[in-house]
Design a protein around this nucleic acid. Structure first.
Length: 198
DNA sequence: CCCTGATTCGC
DNA sequence: GCGAATCAGG
């Protein structure tokens, strides 16, 4: 396979959307994630600007340094700074914190008219994290309970009592039950919700 | 072990 | 330019 305009476009699109290199490779077919990453770099869009980016990385990026034989490039890319609505720095819930807003693999038997599992009340979740979730849920895999694997996000979406119910299904990180975005809203460092007791 | 992107370098 | 191999990290 070669990098036709179409394929490059899809690559750009998906990369910009925050899709992982492996997902993009899978979608394109005929290429490995390495190929995708390589292309991404050659295209000069390794920095996922253009929407939601990562925290500023002042690091000079110096990793593999075993065989130094090449002259370094004086090229200093200005690299336009893109606004970042995502602080991303989470306290990581030391001891107490962490209030899982939803139970992962719950039994499918849920009577109608129940307080829905997830759907975190927006008022107590980090706005940035919420926005991220809203974004990724648009194209969640919409997996059924049985389609979930150890490596898919198990965040329930919709009303379990109706047909409008599925699981996120996006790739979850190792160990974690949810994808990046949902981990962000599932584990909040405790907030002012205590005053809301009934 | 699963995954992520980053880099190198022979082709 | 391409991408496998490798590196570095979660």
């Amino acid at each position: 396979m070669s990098w036709t305009d179409e394929r490059v476009e899809l690559l750009k699109k998906m990369w910009t959307e925050g899709q992982s290199a492996s997902q993009i490779a899978k979608e394109l077919g005929g290429v490995t994630r390495n190929a995708v990453i390589g292309k991404v770099h050659r295209l000069g869009l390794s920095n996922r600007a253009g929407g939601a980016a990562e925290p500023a990385k002042p690091e000079p990026k110096a990793k593999a340094e075993k065989v130094e034989a090449k002259a370094e490039k004086p090229a200093a890319q200005p690299a336009a700074e893109a606004p970042e609505p995502k602080p991303a720095a989470k306290p990581a819930a030391p001891a107490q914190a962490a209030a899982p807003a939803a139970a992962p693999a719950r039994k499918a038997i849920i009577p109608a008219g129940q307080p829905l599992p997830p759907q975190p009340s927006a008022n107590e979740i980090d706005p940035a994290a919420l926005a991220k979730v809203g974004e990724i849920e648009k194209h969640s895999k919409k997996l059924s309970l049985m389609e979930l694997t150890e490596r898919t996000c198990k965040w329930p979406i919709g009303d379990p009592a109706t047909e409008d119910f599925w699981f996120c299904g996006l790739p979850s990180q190792a160990g974690k039950p949810y994808c990046e975005a949902h981990v962000g809203v599932a584990f909040q460092p405790m907030s002012a919700r205590r005053d809301r007791r009934r």
